[in-house]
């Protein structure tokens, strides 16, 4: 149990983020609850504030109207991507003739297949992202949590194998190329300074590497408590604390600072470079927007 490092390394300030941020299409993935929605919105807002025409995409947000494009700020649009809508749009663009499109889309069997076929929902949603990127300077994608995100990234590969020819095959192949091309697409893995998300991020990186070997992701840790990184790390490992609970606010703050630093060894041991984002919270209902605004400022400083 005496494996604690003697001193804290200063978190590297330069990372792949500097390269990834300049790409037209950015996917942010990570475990559920790490703050992907807030961070993608903040990134999108930071791009928009720089005068770039930006689209922020989420998938099937139950709290937003499905398939709706909304202008939410100057230069910034939000789209809640939803499979049925994406399927209609895609098939009409590929069939071309409106009369045939109608026959096709009204057909009960086609409707059934579009809803029930495995993988088709994922393909249609990620296909919509791929298609819409042409209309914006920047597209920032709020991916669903790890398992679903991987199913989405996997779907173009699957369909390119399942369909041997035809427009769907062709598009699936191109999509896969775009997402694997570092000139066109950036992948960011977001985590919290907690053991489970940090570990899951490493697993996610492995899967992404298998999918896109030439396009390594950048790493980011969200909601870091303010920390004195020059302070030598205590030799105590958190598992030796007698209870998992804290006795007071100060005790909690101190323990969490130590714990975060201790947890990040999981990434430091892998020689990963990563960006950190501060833990910003406000107390009232508008807190989300307040956090997004402040995060956007933080990111803006790193985007220029």
């Amino acid at each position: 149990m005496a494996e604690a490092p003697s001193t804290t390394e200063t978190a590297p300030h330069f990372s792949l983020f500097r390269e990834v941020r300049d790409r037209p299409l950015i996917f942010l993935s990570g475990k559920g609850g790490v703050g992907k929605t807030t961070v993608t919105q903040a990134m999108a807002l930071a791009f928009a504030n720089r005068g770039l025409r930006t689209l922020w995409i989420a998938f099937e947000d139950p709290l937003q109207p499905p398939g709706k494009l909304q202008r939410i700020a100057n230069n910034l649009w939000h789209f809640n991507c939803e499979p049925a809508h994406a399927f209609e749009e895609y098939t009409s663009s590929r069939i071309g003739v409106p009369q045939l499109t109608r026959i096709f889309l009204r057909n009960k069997l086609v409707r059934y297949l579009s809803q029930a076929s495995p993988g088709i929902r994922e393909l249609m949603m990620i296909g919509k992202v791929w298609n819409d990127r042409a209309h914006y300077d920047r597209v920032v994608v709020d991916m669903p949590s790890t398992g679903y995100a991987l199913a989405m990234f996997q779907s173009p590969k699957n369909f390119s194998r399942l369909f041997h020819s035809g427009p769907l095959h062709h598009d699936a192949v191109k999509m896969d190329e775009t997402f694997g091309d570092p000139r066109e697409t950036g992948h960011i893995i977001l985590s919290l300074p907690e053991e489970m998300p940090l570990q899951e991020s490493l697993d996610l990186e492995g899967h992404l590497h298998a999918l896109y070997p030439n396009n390594p992701p950048a790493f980011m840790v969200n909601r870091m408590l303010p920390e004195d990184l020059t302070k030598p790390m205590t030799s105590i490992t958190p598992s030796e604390w007698p209870t998992p609970y804290a006795s007071s606010l100060e005790d909690f703050a101190r323990k969490r600072q130590t714990l975060e630093n201790y947890n990040l060894r999981l990434w430091r041991d892998q020689k990963l470079e990563f960006e950190t984002l501060p833990h910003l919270e406000a107390s009232r209902e508008n807190s989300f927007f307040a956090i997004v605004g402040r995060l956007a400022e933080t990111l803006q400083a790193r985007l220029i």
Binding site: R94, I95, L100, F104, H164, H169
Partner: peptide, 11 residues
């Protein structure tokens, strides 16, 4: 007709 369109799309 719907099935023939589907066949064209999927190869």
């Amino acid at each position: 007709r719907a099935l023939s369109i589907l066949e064209k799309l999927t190869g």
